[in-house]
Design a protein around this nucleic acid. Structure first.
Lengths: 218, 218
DNA sequence: GTATTCGGATACAGTATTGTATCTACATAC
DNA sequence: GTATGTAGATACAATACTGTATCCGAATAC
């Protein structure tokens, strides 16, 4: 109600965004194939007509959803690569960001769903991998930046570390969702810490030994 | 063809197993909700009648499938807790077992599918967690046994290590399936090695310093 | 051998879902 | 103002799926 006077383009954008918002929630809650086009449209306050007028298929919308989600996360992490910020600040913010990710189940569920779909569908896999590659490159860039700021030379290529970190993070998160009683937030942090500590440690052993005490322990 | 004369019970068991086999493949390939009862029954060489005569629902069959899968893996790892075996042998076999798991996509896909379902469905979550708890306890037991054999005191509780290891493993595996170009088998081993090495290392620092050179580096 | 039981096939009813084709109303252009 | 195009609603057709109810045939019991 009170659908204000909008330009046609604005109105269309609004509809698209609302459909995406609804899809985000519904796909997370019921799964991609169980969330019907009708469900999504209805949850957004529209009918299937609006859906098909904005997207060609559910798969299309799903990719778009992931793209949008990726853009958000990217912006947050990117803002941290700033020499004006103190290392402590960066570290704290990083922890916050990942803590936030641990709290945001919807987004994570959808990425996992996407990975499953990618494992099954070649075409979709290609699209998803483009996004994941960006994500990884971004994290790798951040790791590199962090190492540089700390003054340590990484023993393992940042890309590899980023890959490992993403995998670990997703595995842990999956445990949290399906076995919340066993994998608590504390346990999750501990696991991540073990991994990060060991990486820092290895780096310190071979880098220019420069006062990098437990640098990235989130 | 040549359906031998079987006792009624044997015949029923055979049907059940065939249905499970077919379900394993189909659910891995298409996903739980996309794999219809009809699909599964047909792939096993039966009709829906056979399905409903052996299971109450698709969910029921799915749990049964996971149970069966768990039993297999359990047996393999359990056989290694044997003082008659050399440490080297145990280590090599462990690596083999996990390499095998990396190769077996069907089983893994289904467990991930199960985790997603558990995140959404409370009742299913309870059932799945019982299985996962067993799995974790089993791995923890194995870790404990291994530490004892090596003569090292773990710094972190074996249960926690098992949890972390499972998470990492699953995250890595998920990457392998959805981004095989990026997460190769080599990369996967490297990531796991980083994790395991660091754990061993920490243990050695605080344990009775007893000749445990890169013990579990798979 | 006859009766019985039960595993699995067949038939059926009901519902959900998709995609398209058509219609309506409002924003734009003039 | 009128004409027009497009976003989104409605209607429709085709299909897929589930679950049950019924039926058939072969294994068991006697």
């Amino acid at each position: 109600m009170s659908r204000k006077r909008l330009s046609r383009e604005d109105s269309r954008d609004q509809t698209t965004q609302r459909l995406l918002d609804a899809a985000q929630k519904l796909i997370a809650r019921k799964g991609l194939s169980a969330a019907s086009v009708e469900d999504i449209a209805a949850a957004a306050g529209y009918t299937r007509g609006a859906f098909y007028s904005n997207f060609n298929s559910k798969g299309d919308l799903f990719i778009e959803l992931l793209r949008r989600d990726h853009a958000k996360a990217h912006a947050a992490l990117d803002a941290l690569r700033d020499d004006a910020l103190s290392l402590d600040h960066i570290q704290a913010r990083t922890r916050d960001i990942y803590a936030g990710l641990y709290r945001d189940n919807e987004s994570f569920m959808n990425w996992t769903e996407a990975r499953m779909l990618a494992a099954r569908d070649t075409k979709f896999r290609a699209k998803l991998n483009a996004l994941i590659a960006e994500k990884r490159a971004e994290i790798a860039g951040f790791i590199e930046y962090f190492y540089r700021r700390v003054g340590v030379t990484p023993a393992v290529p940042p890309e590899a570390l980023a890959m490992g970190f993403m995998s670990l993070f997703e595995g842990v998160k999956l445990s949290m969702l399906s076995s919340p009683a066993d994998m608590t937030a504390d346990a999750a942090e501990a696991v991540l810490a073990v991994f990060l500590d060991s990486i820092i440690q290895v780096a310190r052993q071979q880098g220019p030994q420069q006062h990098a005490r437990r640098a990235a322990t989130g």
